[in-house]
């Protein structure tokens, strides 16, 4: 829970966290080194100085660090893992579904571990998805449409095999499809960030929720247009919210466009930890006010109630969290007690 200036406590869901292993020991090839180094450049580029990590800590941090940063220092109540395997670059998966699940078991109610799939894995992948859904109680998946796979350098949500996987998700009760449409990975397709395929999938599967991570930032305008067409498309704020420090005016413009084109119920906060620490992001977001001219131009407001939705209530709805019940549960868990003792 975080406290607003007027003393109200707000429930926070961090919709995008990771416990990755980008260590040298786990790197398969140069791509593995370049991938985590690119993440590190994002971290260095947009973090306030006092939140910068050394490179060796950044490439592989431990569970204690994660728990401390996200829940104790960061005041997050519930966090959602959005793993990506990247097994062409790393020996063990970069984001590890089994490890995430094990950590979630240690801290009941605190962590939601999403899975992932790759439609190019065909029948075998469908079976694995089914197994994972059963073993890890998946409620969501993270998809990297630009991920390499042998000679293929990406896929689209409209592909027939992807449609089969989405139908499988629906059947297995996996309702939240997080689609990475954002910078930092290795696009080789002509326009890997093109978001129009989300439109096709969202229309074909109205019962599923499509959370477009990083608000499709290289194609923000395209994202806003398609999001107006489909009520089951959501904006995942990770990366865009990090602008709040280096370019608060851009952040104000982005958030006001999202409020204008989507609405306050379809925007979900995410820190992208460990790219950025949730503590400074949440604090700055809570204290953030839209500049008068931008509010006037778009005709939207960023009130405390809207902030509460973005910071927690919207994600809680997607993941069927009973907020008052969860709050009282978490007050008494081991993290809640530590936070309470620290005062």
């Amino acid at each position: 829970m975080v406290k607003t200036a007027d003393g109200e406590e707000i429930f926070v869901v961090d919709g995008h966290v990771a416990l990755w292993d980008g260590s040298v020991a786990n790197q398969k090839n140069r791509h593995g080194a370049e991938f985590i180094d690119c993440f590190y450049d994002y971290h260095r580029n947009l973090s306030p100085k006092e939140w910068l990590w050394p490179h060796d800590k950044f490439i592989h941090y431990d569970e204690q660090t994660f728990i401390h940063d996200v829940f104790e220092e960061g005041s997050v109540d519930v966090a959602i893992f959005q793993p990506v395997g990247l097994t062409d670059f790393y020996k063990e998966p970069f984001g590890n579904v089994a490890k995430n699940y094990a950590l979630a078991q240690k801290y009941p109610g605190r962590l939601i571990g999403n899975g992932y799939f790759d439609p190019r894995d065909g029948e075998e992948g469908l079976e694995r998805l089914e197994q994972w859904a059963k073993d890890y109680h998946l409620q969501g998946v993270k998809l990297y449409t630009a991920e390499w796979h042998g000679s293929s350098k990406g896929y689209r949500l409209a592909d027939p095999w992807t449609q089969r996987y989405l139908a499988k998700c629906l059947q297995l009760g996996i309702r939240n499809i997080h689609v990475h449409k954002g910078p930092t990975i290795k696009p080789l397709n002509m326009d890997a960030f093109d978001v129009s395929d989300v439109d096709d999938a969202a229309s074909a599967f109205p019962e599923l929720n499509f959370i477009v991570e990083h608000v499709g930032l290289p194609r923000l305008e395209q994202f806003c247009w398609i999001a107006t067409q489909d009520p089951n498309i959501y904006a995942g704020l990770a990366v865009a919210d990090a602008f709040i420090y280096t370019r608060p005016r851009y952040f104000a413009q982005i958030i006001s466009e999202l409020l204008y084109w989507l609405n306050e119920d379809r925007i979900v906060f995410g820190s992208d930890y460990a790219l950025w620490h949730p503590k400074w992001l949440i604090d700055m977001f809570l204290n953030f006010e839209l500049p008068e001219d931008i509010a006037q131009e778009t005709g939207v407001q960023l009130t405390k109630d809207i902030k509460k939705k973005i910071l927690g209530l919207n994600a809680a709805r997607l993941y069927q969290i009973d907020v008052p019940a969860r709050i009282s549960e978490l007050q008494h868990d081991v993290i809640g007690q530590r936070v309470h003792q620290a005062g």
Partner: peptide, 23 residues
């Protein structure tokens, strides 16, 4: 409105790219 969105997208990307190049 669309002009505004296109420009915002371009400027935001440029901000990321310049920063990444710098670091």
């Amino acid at each position: 409105h669309q002009l505004r969105l296109i420009t915002l997208n371009m400027e935001s990307n440029a901000h990321i790219c310049r920063g990444l190049l710098r670091v």
